[in-house]
Nucleic acid binder design. Structure first.
Lengths: 338, 338
DNA sequence: TTGAAAGCGCTAACAA
DNA sequence: TTGTTAGCGCTTTCAA
């Protein structure tokens, strides 16, 4: 045992020796090249098992200029975004889907200039085949640098201002917001406000547009406040709304986490939900069912967003032309808050 | 611009040519070798800037057998662990700390045998310098495989049964549990139960021991139920406790997430918190302050756990002898639930 | 269908 | 202090 682990790792050379063919043939056999005789293939297979050979990816990458690694870059101006359950979900699904293809996922945060420089250095070092963008804001300087590097990149959610350049998979934010707003209207709510996400994110912008689509002129400035996708941001925004329009009877909140914050503020202010104020969330993330009362919300198919993003990226890496961006339908989930 | 990005990446050869020294000298200059004249160093620096040279890590790794990458393995029998805010925190801190040292973090999940095989293959492929273990359960087969690979490994939280072999950083679970239990006693609670984590995790086992340390013979089997660190597990465990001991007046719950579940069950059953039943959590994670009422809990210094784990791993990778494991003090955080 | 051989870009040992 | 050179382990022509 100790002898075994002390021995150097077997190389393709060892496999060649044991199987009685040349290194070239071993390589071809390993990579599924059609020009390998059944006999040679069998011999190589046996030798691989016998020697316990595992390819050295560094050596392979050096010559192929590929390395079976993609980077997930989290542009994260507010550290808080990490507490968002959506993030965990995307990360988990992406990791799994990539793992199936034997592609490793490197996590990098790009919150400030130092981080960003590091990401770019890593990418320029040729250590990754592609980039998965998460929560990228409009005008993020990283995007431009990426374009300069000419490295395959795909985003979870559109990168505002770059929709035609960086392919993405996303939920239909605008339509989802319409569904929720329409539902609130149908419930007889008369004075409906909204708490949006940051307007330099597609979720912030498009959900607000959906809200306005339904309410038209009723969507006055007074009834629109902006949050930052955090719980505490939701609390503050709700307080602001209450002071602006004490008689509001419904709020469409741009994320479940912010909605949880809004609920807390309403409770403190003695408003009952949904009797006095109806609350609609967005995401149907883990928090939605754990608030009190549980949130009526809009379900985003984030698993599919992650899956499609990964698929698109791998296609790009394999040399496909720019894949079509894809927008997935949302679904209204009715619980108790509205 | 298009011409620039189309050109092949500059190699050390180009730097040598531009700076007028040999490749060897360039390499030495780049790697901080002391035997480089100031003149040569300056020339190399200038040439690097001029050419935009970035080292090719694959080539470097091929010869150094090092690659500036560590893997974070998440042993995750219950997928749910991903929803735990503790996880996000550890991931974020570790990513950042490693990034500072220009070490990349690869995420891998090892939930089933297929996953595990993939992790081992990746490691045997020599693509990582070390392993960060997360939420590893006693008897996890991965641990043994890791030992066979003789790759540096450090754990966040002890790996039960391997405490002497795999160094770790962890909170003082037992003492933390004692603090909370003692506090409940001091509040005049007479019938105190506990919901533990899985007993094959250090948090499950040691927090239960701390509980028993304080209560002695009063900690009867009837008052001890086991959860799985999920919210729904906490709900179910609380229901079980209520049926076993309807007259209990306090519960020490082994994690904030489970405590949130317990609160929900109590509410459904008409028990007021803390008037009828006091609830103590553990973690002081993001959920603790967002439950209703906010949780009195035990703060784990998870940032420091992550920092220390990373430090230990990098030391190991750099050839240090097995570092001392480190146990960090916890702190009682009093809010409204007890 | 196969083997031989030329690198991929870099580090490190050696000689100068 | 420097240049030269031999690989690291692999893929991929090129000939056969």
């Amino acid at each position: 045992m100790s002898v075994t682990s002390a021995r150097r790792r077997p190389t393709i050379h060892d496999v060649a020796r044991v199987s009685g063919v040349s290194r070239g043939t071993v390589s071809r056999a390993l990579n599924g090249d059609p020009y390998v005789s059944p006999a040679a293939l069998a011999a190589v297979r046996r030798a691989v098992t016998e020697t316990g050979y595992v390819v050295n990816r560094n050596a392979r990458s050096l010559v192929t200029q590929r390395n079976g690694t993609v980077v997930m870059v989290l542009s994260e101006p507010q550290e808080k975004l990490f507490e968002d359950p959506n993030f965990s979900l995307l990360l988990r699904v992406a990791t799994r889907r990539l793992a199936v293809k034997d592609v490793a996922l490197v996590m990098m945060v790009a919150g400030d200039d130092g981080d960003r420089e590091r990401v770019v250095r890593y990418l320029r070092g040729g250590h990754a085949d592609g980039v998965l963008l998460l929560s990228t804001h409009a005008g993020d300087p990283l995007v431009e640098e990426l374009e300069g590097l000419a490295i395959p990149a795909v985003a979870c959610g559109a990168v505002l201002g770059r929709e035609g350049i960086i392919p993405y998979a996303a939920a239909d934010d605008r339509e989802g917001a319409r569904q929720m707003t329409q539902y609130l209207v149908e419930q007889g709510r008369k004075k409906i406000a909204t708490i949006t996400g940051p307007l330099d994110t597609p979720g912030g912008l498009n959900r607000l547009e959906g809200f306005c689509d339904v309410l038209g002129r009723k969507a006055t400035k007074k009834l629109i406040v902006h949050g930052d996708y955090t719980r505490s941001g939701g609390e503050a925004a709700m307080a602001e709304l209450l002071s602006r329009a004490p008689d509001l009877d419904a709020v469409f909140v741009g994320s479940d986490l912010m909605a949880a914050g809004a609920l807390a503020t309403l409770r403190v202010n003695g408003r009952r939900v949904p009797e006095d104020v109806a609350i609609g969330g967005f995401d149907d993330s883990a928090v939605a069912s754990s608030t009190h009362p549980p949130l009526t919300t809009v379900r985003q198919p984030l698993e599919r967003v992650a899956e499609e993003t990964v698929r698109m990226l791998l296609e790009l890496v394999d040399g496909a032309t720019r894949p079509e961006s894809i927008v997935l339908a949302t679904e209204l989930v009715i619980r108790d808050s509205a």
